[in-house]
Design a protein around this nucleic acid. Structure first.
Length: 413
RNA sequence: CGGGGACUGGCCUAAUUGGUUAAGGCACUCGGUUUGGGACCGAGAGACUCCGGGUUCGAGUCCCGGGUUCCCGACCA
Protein backbone atom coordinates (compact mmCIF):
# COMPACT_ATOMS: atom_id res chain seq x y z
CA UNK A 1 0.00 0.00 0.00
CA UNK A 2 1.31 3.40 -0.93
CA UNK A 3 1.00 5.87 1.87
CA UNK A 4 0.08 8.68 -0.51
CA UNK A 5 -3.05 6.70 -1.41
CA UNK A 6 -3.86 5.61 2.12
CA UNK A 7 -6.69 7.06 4.21
CA UNK A 8 -4.30 8.07 6.94
CA UNK A 9 -3.05 11.19 8.56
CA UNK A 10 -1.14 11.36 11.79
CA UNK A 11 -1.49 14.24 14.19
CA UNK A 12 1.33 16.13 15.71
CA UNK A 13 -0.67 17.13 18.73
CA UNK A 14 -3.35 15.36 20.67
CA UNK A 15 -5.50 16.62 23.51
CA UNK A 16 -4.07 16.20 26.96
CA UNK A 17 -7.49 15.33 28.29
CA UNK A 18 -7.35 11.63 27.50
CA UNK A 19 -4.78 10.16 29.81
CA UNK A 20 -4.89 6.58 28.57
CA UNK A 21 -1.86 5.80 26.43
CA UNK A 22 -3.82 3.60 24.05
CA UNK A 23 -6.38 6.35 23.41
CA UNK A 24 -3.70 8.95 22.73
CA UNK A 25 -1.43 6.87 20.54
CA UNK A 26 -4.14 5.17 18.53
CA UNK A 27 -5.78 8.49 17.71
CA UNK A 28 -2.56 10.36 17.11
CA UNK A 29 -1.21 7.68 14.81
CA UNK A 30 -4.44 7.47 12.83
CA UNK A 31 -5.75 4.04 13.83
CA UNK A 32 -9.04 5.11 15.36
CA UNK A 33 -11.24 8.14 15.79
CA UNK A 34 -13.47 8.76 18.76
CA UNK A 35 -17.10 9.37 17.87
CA UNK A 36 -18.69 9.21 21.32
CA UNK A 37 -17.39 8.34 24.75
CA UNK A 38 -16.47 4.68 24.40
CA UNK A 39 -17.42 4.54 20.72
CA UNK A 40 -14.75 4.53 18.02
CA UNK A 41 -14.40 4.41 14.28
CA UNK A 42 -11.61 2.22 13.00
CA UNK A 43 -9.57 3.81 10.22
CA UNK A 44 -7.73 1.60 7.71
CA UNK A 45 -4.70 1.07 9.95
CA UNK A 46 -6.86 0.24 12.95
CA UNK A 47 -9.11 -2.00 10.90
CA UNK A 48 -6.11 -4.04 9.79
CA UNK A 49 -4.98 -4.58 13.37
CA UNK A 50 -8.46 -5.42 14.58
CA UNK A 51 -8.90 -7.92 11.74
CA UNK A 52 -5.62 -9.60 12.56
CA UNK A 53 -6.56 -9.95 16.21
CA UNK A 54 -9.94 -11.36 15.24
CA UNK A 55 -8.40 -13.76 12.73
CA UNK A 56 -6.05 -15.19 15.34
CA UNK A 57 -9.03 -15.73 17.61
CA UNK A 58 -10.97 -17.23 14.71
CA UNK A 59 -8.18 -19.70 13.92
CA UNK A 60 -7.98 -20.90 17.50
CA UNK A 61 -11.75 -21.23 17.79
CA UNK A 62 -11.91 -23.24 14.60
CA UNK A 63 -9.07 -25.39 15.95
CA UNK A 64 -11.20 -26.54 18.89
CA UNK A 65 -14.08 -27.37 16.60
CA UNK A 66 -16.32 -24.37 17.20
CA UNK A 67 -18.48 -23.21 14.28
CA UNK A 68 -18.61 -19.56 13.37
CA UNK A 69 -22.03 -17.94 13.20
CA UNK A 70 -23.37 -14.40 13.28
CA UNK A 71 -26.18 -13.22 15.50
CA UNK A 72 -28.00 -9.89 15.41
CA UNK A 73 -27.28 -6.86 17.53
CA UNK A 74 -31.00 -6.08 17.65
CA UNK A 75 -32.80 -8.48 19.93
CA UNK A 76 -36.40 -9.02 20.98
CA UNK A 77 -37.47 -7.66 24.33
CA UNK A 78 -39.40 -10.85 25.15
CA UNK A 79 -36.23 -12.93 25.22
CA UNK A 80 -34.72 -10.60 27.77
CA UNK A 81 -37.86 -10.68 29.85
CA UNK A 82 -37.75 -14.46 29.77
CA UNK A 83 -34.35 -14.43 31.48
CA UNK A 84 -35.39 -11.53 33.72
CA UNK A 85 -32.51 -9.45 32.45
CA UNK A 86 -34.63 -6.78 30.74
CA UNK A 87 -34.93 -4.96 34.05
CA UNK A 88 -31.96 -6.26 36.01
CA UNK A 89 -29.09 -5.68 33.60
CA UNK A 90 -28.31 -2.00 33.98
CA UNK A 91 -25.90 -1.84 31.03
CA UNK A 92 -28.62 -2.99 28.63
CA UNK A 93 -29.30 -0.55 25.80
CA UNK A 94 -33.04 -0.41 25.25
CA UNK A 95 -34.10 0.96 21.90
CA UNK A 96 -37.53 2.28 21.05
CA UNK A 97 -38.55 1.85 17.45
CA UNK A 98 -40.32 4.54 15.45
CA UNK A 99 -43.44 2.36 15.69
CA UNK A 100 -43.38 2.17 19.43
CA UNK A 101 -42.06 -1.27 20.24
CA UNK A 102 -38.89 -1.83 22.25
CA UNK A 103 -35.90 -4.00 21.65
CA UNK A 104 -32.45 -4.58 23.10
CA UNK A 105 -29.04 -3.93 21.59
CA UNK A 106 -27.17 -7.07 22.48
CA UNK A 107 -24.62 -6.78 25.29
CA UNK A 108 -24.20 -10.57 25.02
CA UNK A 109 -26.05 -13.32 23.18
CA UNK A 110 -27.36 -16.02 25.51
CA UNK A 111 -30.85 -14.70 24.76
CA UNK A 112 -30.39 -15.46 21.09
CA UNK A 113 -28.15 -18.50 20.99
CA UNK A 114 -30.14 -20.55 23.50
CA UNK A 115 -33.46 -20.41 21.61
CA UNK A 116 -31.45 -20.89 18.41
CA UNK A 117 -30.14 -24.18 19.77
CA UNK A 118 -33.63 -25.50 20.43
CA UNK A 119 -34.19 -26.31 16.78
CA UNK A 120 -30.76 -27.87 16.42
CA UNK A 121 -30.41 -29.89 19.61
CA UNK A 122 -32.99 -32.43 20.67
CA UNK A 123 -31.05 -35.63 21.37
CA UNK A 124 -27.90 -36.68 23.19
CA UNK A 125 -26.75 -37.57 19.67
CA UNK A 126 -26.73 -33.83 18.87
CA UNK A 127 -24.28 -33.09 21.69
CA UNK A 128 -21.78 -31.66 22.28
CA UNK A 129 -21.89 -28.62 20.01
CA UNK A 130 -20.21 -25.24 20.08
CA UNK A 131 -20.72 -22.03 18.13
CA UNK A 132 -19.05 -18.65 18.22
CA UNK A 133 -19.27 -15.26 16.64
CA UNK A 134 -17.14 -12.14 16.42
CA UNK A 135 -19.51 -9.25 16.57
CA UNK A 136 -20.23 -5.80 17.92
CA UNK A 137 -21.60 -5.57 21.44
CA UNK A 138 -23.38 -2.71 23.13
CA UNK A 139 -23.23 -1.97 26.82
CA UNK A 140 -24.43 1.24 28.35
CA UNK A 141 -21.55 1.50 30.78
CA UNK A 142 -22.00 4.11 33.47
CA UNK A 143 -18.54 5.31 32.65
CA UNK A 144 -16.70 4.55 29.45
CA UNK A 145 -12.98 4.98 29.98
CA UNK A 146 -9.41 4.35 28.96
CA UNK A 147 -9.77 4.47 25.20
CA UNK A 148 -10.52 1.06 23.76
CA UNK A 149 -10.37 -0.60 27.14
CA UNK A 150 -13.91 0.04 28.26
CA UNK A 151 -16.27 1.05 25.50
CA UNK A 152 -20.01 1.26 25.08
CA UNK A 153 -19.77 -0.25 21.60
CA UNK A 154 -17.00 -2.79 21.22
CA UNK A 155 -15.98 -5.97 19.47
CA UNK A 156 -16.42 -9.31 21.16
CA UNK A 157 -15.87 -12.92 20.33
CA UNK A 158 -18.42 -14.99 22.17
CA UNK A 159 -18.40 -18.75 22.17
CA UNK A 160 -21.25 -20.92 23.48
CA UNK A 161 -21.04 -24.62 24.08
CA UNK A 162 -23.76 -27.23 24.68
CA UNK A 163 -23.24 -30.48 26.57
CA UNK A 164 -25.05 -33.54 27.85
CA UNK A 165 -23.03 -33.87 31.06
CA UNK A 166 -21.12 -31.77 33.54
CA UNK A 167 -18.01 -33.83 32.84
CA UNK A 168 -18.19 -33.04 29.17
CA UNK A 169 -18.76 -29.34 29.91
CA UNK A 170 -15.80 -29.22 32.29
CA UNK A 171 -13.58 -30.97 29.80
CA UNK A 172 -14.49 -28.51 27.07
CA UNK A 173 -14.06 -25.61 29.49
CA UNK A 174 -10.42 -26.63 29.93
CA UNK A 175 -9.98 -27.00 26.21
CA UNK A 176 -11.21 -23.43 25.74
CA UNK A 177 -8.89 -22.23 28.49
CA UNK A 178 -5.96 -23.74 26.60
CA UNK A 179 -7.10 -22.14 23.34
CA UNK A 180 -7.32 -18.80 25.11
CA UNK A 181 -3.81 -19.19 26.43
CA UNK A 182 -2.57 -19.75 22.88
CA UNK A 183 -4.53 -16.76 21.62
CA UNK A 184 -3.05 -14.35 24.14
CA UNK A 185 0.44 -15.67 23.52
CA UNK A 186 0.03 -14.98 19.82
CA UNK A 187 -1.37 -11.53 20.51
CA UNK A 188 1.70 -10.63 22.53
CA UNK A 189 -0.23 -10.13 25.75
CA UNK A 190 0.85 -12.72 28.30
CA UNK A 191 -2.36 -13.21 30.22
CA UNK A 192 -2.72 -14.59 33.71
CA UNK A 193 -5.21 -17.33 34.38
CA UNK A 194 -7.35 -16.01 37.21
CA UNK A 195 -10.00 -17.59 39.39
CA UNK A 196 -13.02 -15.33 39.66
CA UNK A 197 -16.60 -15.31 40.79
CA UNK A 198 -19.29 -16.49 38.44
CA UNK A 199 -21.28 -13.31 38.76
CA UNK A 200 -24.95 -14.12 38.45
CA UNK A 201 -24.11 -17.06 36.19
CA UNK A 202 -22.43 -19.68 38.25
CA UNK A 203 -20.38 -20.34 41.35
CA UNK A 204 -17.07 -19.53 39.70
CA UNK A 205 -15.45 -18.55 36.45
CA UNK A 206 -11.99 -17.93 35.12
CA UNK A 207 -10.63 -14.71 33.73
CA UNK A 208 -7.65 -13.96 31.56
CA UNK A 209 -6.06 -10.88 33.01
CA UNK A 210 -3.17 -8.81 31.73
CA UNK A 211 -1.08 -7.04 34.30
CA UNK A 212 -1.20 -3.33 33.53
CA UNK A 213 -1.46 -0.18 35.63
CA UNK A 214 -4.48 0.82 33.49
CA UNK A 215 -6.28 -2.34 34.59
CA UNK A 216 -9.58 -2.03 36.41
CA UNK A 217 -9.26 -5.24 38.37
CA UNK A 218 -7.21 -6.05 41.42
CA UNK A 219 -5.72 -9.50 41.15
CA UNK A 220 -3.66 -11.61 43.54
CA UNK A 221 -1.07 -13.69 41.76
CA UNK A 222 0.61 -16.75 43.21
CA UNK A 223 4.36 -16.21 43.26
CA UNK A 224 4.87 -19.91 42.81
CA UNK A 225 2.89 -20.68 39.68
CA UNK A 226 1.36 -17.38 38.50
CA UNK A 227 -2.19 -18.61 39.00
CA UNK A 228 -4.26 -15.56 39.84
CA UNK A 229 -7.23 -14.90 42.06
CA UNK A 230 -9.56 -11.98 41.54
CA UNK A 231 -9.93 -9.71 44.54
CA UNK A 232 -13.68 -10.40 44.53
CA UNK A 233 -13.12 -13.95 45.77
CA UNK A 234 -9.71 -13.56 47.43
CA UNK A 235 -9.50 -14.32 51.12
CA UNK A 236 -6.52 -13.67 53.38
CA UNK A 237 -5.95 -17.35 54.07
CA UNK A 238 -6.32 -18.27 50.40
CA UNK A 239 -4.15 -21.20 49.46
CA UNK A 240 -3.10 -21.60 45.85
CA UNK A 241 -5.11 -24.47 44.37
CA UNK A 242 -2.20 -25.30 42.14
CA UNK A 243 0.96 -25.25 44.27
CA UNK A 244 -0.30 -25.08 47.82
CA UNK A 245 1.39 -21.84 48.94
CA UNK A 246 0.00 -18.67 50.51
CA UNK A 247 2.54 -16.48 48.76
CA UNK A 248 0.67 -13.88 46.68
CA UNK A 249 1.45 -10.54 45.11
CA UNK A 250 -1.13 -7.86 44.38
CA UNK A 251 -1.41 -6.36 40.91
CA UNK A 252 -3.66 -4.26 38.69
CA UNK A 253 -4.90 -6.08 35.65
CA UNK A 254 -7.24 -5.76 32.71
CA UNK A 255 -9.61 -8.57 31.87
CA UNK A 256 -9.21 -9.63 28.25
CA UNK A 257 -11.09 -12.92 28.43
CA UNK A 258 -13.60 -14.69 30.61
CA UNK A 259 -14.96 -18.21 30.66
CA UNK A 260 -18.10 -19.41 32.47
CA UNK A 261 -19.90 -22.63 33.05
CA UNK A 262 -23.49 -21.52 32.62
CA UNK A 263 -24.76 -25.04 33.25
CA UNK A 264 -28.56 -24.91 32.97
CA UNK A 265 -29.20 -21.25 33.75
CA UNK A 266 -30.24 -20.33 30.23
CA UNK A 267 -31.42 -23.72 29.06
CA UNK A 268 -33.92 -23.57 31.93
CA UNK A 269 -35.15 -20.12 30.86
CA UNK A 270 -35.70 -21.24 27.29
CA UNK A 271 -36.57 -24.85 28.04
CA UNK A 272 -33.63 -26.22 26.06
CA UNK A 273 -33.70 -29.98 26.65
CA UNK A 274 -32.46 -33.12 25.02
CA UNK A 275 -33.54 -36.74 25.08
CA UNK A 276 -31.02 -38.84 26.91
CA UNK A 277 -30.12 -42.43 25.99
CA UNK A 278 -32.58 -43.74 28.55
CA UNK A 279 -35.38 -41.71 26.96
CA UNK A 280 -35.61 -39.15 29.73
CA UNK A 281 -35.70 -35.41 29.00
CA UNK A 282 -32.77 -33.47 30.45
CA UNK A 283 -31.68 -29.86 30.37
CA UNK A 284 -28.74 -29.05 28.11
CA UNK A 285 -25.63 -27.81 29.94
CA UNK A 286 -24.03 -24.69 28.57
CA UNK A 287 -20.79 -22.78 28.77
CA UNK A 288 -19.97 -19.30 27.50
CA UNK A 289 -16.59 -17.85 26.74
CA UNK A 290 -15.69 -14.29 25.72
CA UNK A 291 -12.76 -12.30 24.42
CA UNK A 292 -12.82 -8.62 23.56
CA UNK A 293 -10.70 -8.01 20.44
CA UNK A 294 -11.05 -4.24 20.66
CA UNK A 295 -10.05 -4.21 24.32
CA UNK A 296 -7.12 -6.48 23.42
CA UNK A 297 -6.02 -3.86 20.89
CA UNK A 298 -6.00 -1.24 23.62
CA UNK A 299 -4.16 -3.48 26.05
CA UNK A 300 -1.54 -4.34 23.43
CA UNK A 301 -0.78 -0.65 22.91
CA UNK A 302 -0.58 -0.13 26.67
CA UNK A 303 1.95 -2.96 26.81
CA UNK A 304 3.91 -2.23 23.64
CA UNK A 305 4.92 1.38 23.16
CA UNK A 306 7.67 3.86 23.92
CA UNK A 307 7.97 7.66 23.94
CA UNK A 308 7.89 7.78 20.16
CA UNK A 309 4.84 5.65 19.54
CA UNK A 310 3.43 2.16 19.21
CA UNK A 311 5.52 -1.01 18.83
CA UNK A 312 3.22 -3.63 17.33
CA UNK A 313 3.90 -7.32 17.92
CA UNK A 314 4.54 -8.83 14.52
CA UNK A 315 1.49 -11.09 14.33
CA UNK A 316 -0.96 -8.23 14.63
CA UNK A 317 0.97 -5.34 13.12
CA UNK A 318 -0.99 -3.51 10.42
CA UNK A 319 1.93 -4.10 8.04
CA UNK A 320 5.14 -6.06 8.39
CA UNK A 321 7.39 -3.54 6.67
CA UNK A 322 7.34 0.24 6.55
CA UNK A 323 9.29 1.19 3.45
CA UNK A 324 10.42 4.81 3.41
CA UNK A 325 11.82 6.79 0.51
CA UNK A 326 13.70 9.51 2.33
CA UNK A 327 14.93 11.82 -0.39
CA UNK A 328 11.91 11.61 -2.61
CA UNK A 329 13.17 14.40 -4.90
CA UNK A 330 15.88 12.04 -6.06
CA UNK A 331 14.55 9.82 -8.83
CA UNK A 332 17.14 7.15 -8.12
CA UNK A 333 15.72 6.89 -4.63
CA UNK A 334 12.13 6.68 -5.77
CA UNK A 335 12.96 4.23 -8.55
CA UNK A 336 14.83 2.01 -6.17
CA UNK A 337 12.16 2.22 -3.48
CA UNK A 338 9.46 1.49 -6.02
CA UNK A 339 11.34 -1.61 -7.12
CA UNK A 340 11.71 -2.86 -3.55
CA UNK A 341 8.05 -2.11 -2.96
CA UNK A 342 7.02 -4.17 -5.98
CA UNK A 343 9.32 -6.97 -4.91
CA UNK A 344 7.94 -7.15 -1.40
CA UNK A 345 4.39 -7.10 -2.73
CA UNK A 346 5.22 -9.88 -5.14
CA UNK A 347 6.61 -11.93 -2.26
CA UNK A 348 3.42 -11.43 -0.30
CA UNK A 349 5.02 -9.21 2.33
CA UNK A 350 2.61 -6.67 3.75
CA UNK A 351 4.28 -3.34 3.16
CA UNK A 352 3.30 0.27 3.69
CA UNK A 353 5.36 2.39 1.32
CA UNK A 354 5.88 5.99 2.36
CA UNK A 355 6.13 7.52 -1.09
CA UNK A 356 4.91 10.95 0.00
CA UNK A 357 6.75 13.77 -1.69
CA UNK A 358 8.19 16.95 -0.24
CA UNK A 359 8.19 15.73 3.32
CA UNK A 360 11.21 16.19 5.52
CA UNK A 361 13.07 13.07 6.64
CA UNK A 362 12.27 13.86 10.24
CA UNK A 363 8.59 13.85 9.56
CA UNK A 364 8.61 10.50 7.81
CA UNK A 365 10.76 8.87 10.47
CA UNK A 366 8.67 10.30 13.29
CA UNK A 367 5.48 9.06 11.61
CA UNK A 368 7.02 5.65 11.20
CA UNK A 369 7.90 5.41 14.88
CA UNK A 370 4.44 6.61 15.83
CA UNK A 371 2.65 4.03 13.67
CA UNK A 372 4.90 1.27 14.93
CA UNK A 373 5.30 -1.19 12.05
CA UNK A 374 7.85 -3.87 13.09
CA UNK A 375 10.40 -3.45 10.27
CA UNK A 376 11.51 -0.11 8.88
CA UNK A 377 13.31 -0.05 5.56
CA UNK A 378 14.86 3.24 4.49
CA UNK A 379 16.05 4.09 1.00
CA UNK A 380 17.91 7.38 0.68
CA UNK A 381 20.72 8.96 -1.32
CA UNK A 382 23.01 7.84 1.47
CA UNK A 383 22.04 4.18 1.32
CA UNK A 384 22.12 4.20 -2.46
CA UNK A 385 25.68 5.48 -2.52
CA UNK A 386 26.62 2.10 -1.10
CA UNK A 387 23.95 0.34 -3.11
CA UNK A 388 22.27 -0.78 0.10
CA UNK A 389 19.20 -0.21 2.19
CA UNK A 390 18.80 0.47 5.87
CA UNK A 391 16.88 -2.00 8.00
CA UNK A 392 15.75 -1.27 11.53
CA UNK A 393 13.34 -2.97 13.86
CA UNK A 394 10.88 -0.72 15.63
CA UNK A 395 11.67 -2.51 18.88
CA UNK A 396 15.40 -1.82 18.71
CA UNK A 397 17.69 1.14 18.19
CA UNK A 398 20.11 -0.60 15.91
CA UNK A 399 19.88 0.07 12.19
CA UNK A 400 21.92 -1.97 9.76
CA UNK A 401 22.87 -1.44 6.14
CA UNK A 402 22.27 -4.53 4.07
CA UNK A 403 22.31 -5.48 0.42
CA UNK A 404 18.98 -4.95 -1.25
CA UNK A 405 18.67 -8.59 -2.22
CA UNK A 406 19.12 -9.68 1.38
CA UNK A 407 16.03 -7.95 2.66
CA UNK A 408 13.71 -10.92 2.56
CA UNK A 409 15.95 -13.22 4.57
CA UNK A 410 16.50 -10.53 7.14
CA UNK A 411 12.83 -9.90 7.78
CA UNK A 412 11.67 -13.48 7.78
CA UNK A 413 13.35 -14.18 11.07
C1' C B 1 -24.96 6.91 39.29
C1' G B 2 -22.18 10.53 43.01
C1' G B 3 -17.86 14.14 43.04
C1' G B 4 -14.48 17.30 40.32
C1' G B 5 -12.49 19.60 35.74
C1' A B 6 -13.07 20.98 30.61
C1' C B 7 -15.64 22.76 25.94
C1' U B 8 -12.69 28.58 21.10
C1' G B 9 -11.57 27.09 12.64
C1' G B 10 -10.36 19.78 10.97
C1' C B 11 -6.36 19.19 15.42
C1' C B 12 -3.54 21.60 19.76
C1' U B 13 -3.80 26.13 22.28
C1' A B 14 -4.13 31.95 23.47
C1' A B 15 -7.22 36.15 24.45
C1' U B 16 -4.90 41.92 30.16
C1' U B 17 -9.60 38.18 34.19
C1' G B 18 -16.03 42.11 31.43
C1' G B 19 -13.77 46.03 26.58
C1' U B 20 -14.26 47.22 20.69
C1' U B 21 -12.17 43.72 14.21
C1' A B 22 -11.36 36.38 18.66
C1' A B 23 -4.74 35.56 18.28
C1' G B 24 -0.96 31.76 17.23
C1' G B 25 0.94 26.76 15.94
C1' C B 26 -0.26 22.06 13.22
C1' A B 27 -2.91 20.51 9.00
C1' C B 28 -4.86 22.62 4.12
C1' U B 29 -4.21 25.86 -0.98
C1' C B 30 -0.61 28.73 -4.19
C1' G B 31 4.63 30.29 -5.12
C1' G B 32 9.70 29.73 -3.69
C1' U B 33 13.60 27.37 -0.95
C1' U B 34 15.04 22.82 1.67
C1' U B 35 15.89 16.93 2.40
C1' G B 36 18.75 11.51 7.80
C1' G B 37 14.80 12.91 13.24
C1' G B 38 8.20 16.38 13.18
C1' A B 39 12.65 22.56 8.02
C1' C B 40 11.99 27.78 6.24
C1' C B 41 10.03 32.41 3.62
C1' G B 42 5.85 34.85 1.33
C1' A B 43 0.64 34.82 0.08
C1' G B 44 -4.32 32.59 0.98
C1' A B 45 -8.58 30.07 2.73
C1' G B 46 -10.93 28.45 7.10
C1' A B 47 -15.08 30.53 13.60
C1' C B 48 -22.74 31.82 14.94
C1' U B 49 -16.24 30.82 20.88
C1' C B 50 -21.20 23.46 22.64
C1' C B 51 -26.73 24.95 22.92
C1' G B 52 -30.61 28.03 25.27
C1' G B 53 -31.77 31.92 28.50
C1' G B 54 -30.14 35.99 31.77
C1' U B 55 -27.03 40.25 33.85
C1' U B 56 -24.51 44.52 31.31
C1' C B 57 -23.49 50.32 27.40
C1' G B 58 -20.53 45.91 26.22
C1' A B 59 -20.02 38.52 27.34
C1' G B 60 -15.32 33.63 24.67
C1' U B 61 -14.96 35.59 29.78
C1' C B 62 -20.07 36.50 34.88
C1' C B 63 -25.08 33.91 36.43
C1' C B 64 -29.01 29.98 35.51
C1' G B 65 -30.56 25.64 32.72
C1' G B 66 -29.25 21.85 29.25
C1' G B 67 -25.63 18.96 26.36
C1' U B 68 -20.99 16.74 25.44
C1' U B 69 -16.38 15.09 27.20
C1' C B 70 -12.26 13.74 30.61
C1' C B 71 -10.64 12.22 35.49
C1' C B 72 -11.72 9.96 40.59
C1' G B 73 -15.22 6.78 42.92
C1' A B 74 -19.33 3.27 42.64
C1' C B 75 -20.66 -0.37 38.93
C1' C B 76 -18.74 -4.21 35.53
C1' A B 77 -22.94 -10.50 32.23
Amino acid sequence: MKQSDYFLKTQKTVSGEDTAVNAKLLEQAGFVQKVLAGVYSYLPLGMRVLSKIENIIREEMDAIGANEILMPAMQPKENWQKTERWDSLDVLFKVKSAHGYELALGPTHEEIVTPMAKSLISSYRDLPKSVYQIQTKFRDEARAKSGLMRGREFRMKDLYSFHASEEDLSQYYLQVAQAYTRIFQRLGIPALYVEASGGSFSKYSHEFQVETPQGEDLVYVCNGCNLGVNKEIFTDDKKCTNCDTHDYRETHASEVGNIFELKTKFSDSFDLKYSAEDGSLKPVLMGCYGIGPSRCMGVIVEEHHDDNGIIWPIEIAPFKVHLIALNSDNSEVTDSAEKIYQNLQAQGVEVLYDDRENLSPGQKLADSDLIGIPYRVVISTKTLEQNKLELKQRSSDAAVLIDQDQLLENISK
